[in-house]
């Protein structure tokens, strides 16, 4: 495996009954870069993301085959500690789903699952992760309030902080800004750009401009196929495939 590759996906197939959701996916996701998975709705982006942290296990109707190597460890074959494995990845979903707890406990719960129980350390880390997610200054006086009282944009950043609190190496983000206003979206994007020095980021989106703004690498998917992948300059500047050109030109149908 290449030194700079963090995730290597080989021959990944996902079936739901007789329909094939993902068809022979082969992707290399580089370390400490933002890889954007781009494509229209229903092309299998979310399913791909769910394969990466084995949330596909929740859906018994999905049949997953192939290999996903993270640091030379095939996570699809992993039998025992799926929970540990999921902690390698922080997840950010389309809409924020704060846990039914206080703001503080949303983060400290993640820390507890990681094995941190010391109160002073917990306190320090909660502050650290909220700062990392660009949220601390807004909510420092409201830590004991229920997380559901935050605005949607704040909730999404709280979810990001929570995802970071499990100390992952990878951040998986599934259209994380689709429910947010432009300013909150910008916050999230800026945070991603800052975070990529320490994390490998996989971002699913259908917003072209967002991809252009923050992506290092782009994977274009359509109906369960990877059509094209490469650096952002290659894919956006000089797309090789007809479908990619059409999608980027906005005349896709």
């Amino acid at each position: 495996m290449d030194q700079n590759t963090k995730i290597e996906i080989r021959d990944l197939n996902v079936f739901a009954g007789k329909t094939q959701i993902l068809k022979n996916i082969n992707i290399d996701i580089p370390k400490n870069k933002i890889t954007v998975i781009l494509g229209p709705s229903g092309c299998g982006k979310t399913t791909l993301l769910k394969c990466l942290n084995r949330l596909t296990d929740l859906y018994p109707e999905l049949k997953v085959s192939g290999k996903i190597m993270i640091d030379d460890n095939n996570i699809l074959a992993a039998k025992e500690d799926i929970y540990k494995l999921r902690q390698q990845m922080g997840l950010l979903s389309q809409r924020p789903y704060p846990l039914p707890m206080t703001i503080y406990n949303n983060i400290s719960y993640a820390l507890k699952l990681r094995g941190i129980r010391n109160r002073r350390e917990t306190h320090k880390l909660v502050m650290h992760y909220l700062q990392q997610a660009n949220l601390w200054d807004e909510i420092r006086t409201r830590l004991r309030e229920p997380a559901s009282r935050l605005s949607i944009g704040q909730q999404q950043r709280l979810c990001l902080a929570r995802g970071l609190a499990v100390n992952p190496e990878i951040i998986l983000a599934d259209e994380p800004t689709s429910a947010l206003d432009p300013i909150s979206s910008q916050f999230i994007e800026e945070t991603f750009v800052k975070l990529k020095h320490d994390y490998t980021i996989v971002l699913v989106t259908h917003v072209l401009r967002q991809a252009k703004r923050i992506a290092d690498n782009v994977v274009f998917m359509y109906l369960g196929d990877v059509i094209e992948q490469g650096s952002v300059e290659e894919v956006f500047g000089n797309p090789k495939m007809e479908k990619t050109k059409l999608y980027l030109g906005g005349t896709f149908n």
């Binding site: 929740l58 999921r86 922080g90 789903y97 993640a110």
Partner: peptide, 14 residues
């Protein structure tokens, strides 16, 4: 919502 469950599981909860 399923996503709440996924959120908790993604943190490494059993």
């Amino acid at each position: 919502p399923m996503e709440l469950k996924e959120a908790a599981l993604s943190l490494g909860a059993t």
